[in-house]
Design a protein around this nucleic acid. Structure first.
Lengths: 105, 105
DNA sequence: GTAAAATATCAATATATATTGAATCAGTGA
DNA sequence: TCACTGATTCAATATATATTGATATTTTAC
């Protein structure tokens, strides 16, 4: 009587996906980026200045987030504005809660 | 007009805590462990067999989870039984949702 | 007391990931 | 065209983390 998450194929796929998602948001700076983007759309310049991170490092973290589809970008002249991809974020967020909140209260 | 999570001290402490929590549960095997422990209390033997992990690696992951207080252990003869620490898990889970679910919808 | 079973620990290694610095690219305005 | 600004890319390095193998610890049964 192996537990469901070890036997059920869909369940273990979901766990893998969730773990991938977690890997993306675990990094503190990326978590912060998600957090400040929830208030408003921002360009890279704003972001690295708010977080006091090097500009290229910020760009790198943004790329990681974008590759995972958690944020979207829009070019406006010299600037690139980033915004949260709410649908995707919520989807993963729900998936995660499925595993964490099983424990009822 | 820096965003709140960059200026508000409590907020940025919470982000740090959340990131630490995420580091613990990001690892796929640990996430699985949390998952199977939600169904029932289990001993190390069960766990490593279910997950087909080496025994010592399982022990190590359990220690990481326990050091973070996400699980508790109870000795019974040769065996050590592990169980979820629901209160702590829920606390962090809520903290995380505070950052992920800000995005309404 | 000795052997076996379940678990934990430790040092060594492998692997992944973040960070840095330099170089590059793409728009903008003189 | 040229210089400037904002952003990205790339290679090199640093750092953290998972994994492995060997060893130790604890409890039980003989």
């Amino acid at each position: 009587m192996k537990p469901r998450c070890c036997t059920n194929k869909k369940n273990s796929q979901d766990i893998r996906k969730t773990a991938e998602f977690l890997k993306i948001i675990t990094e503190e700076n990326r978590l912060k980026i998600l957090c400040i983007l929830q208030e408003e759309e921002l360009c890279v310049l704003d972001i690295w200045q708010y977080l006091t991170l090097p500009q290229n490092l910020t760009s790198h973290h943004l790329k990681v987030l974008k590759d995972f589809n958690l944020i979207a970008s829009r070019k406006a002249g010299l600037r690139v504005f980033y915004s949260i991809n709410k649908k995707v974020l919520n989807r993963y967020s729900k998936l995660l809660n499925k595993f964490l909140n099983l424990c009822g209260e």
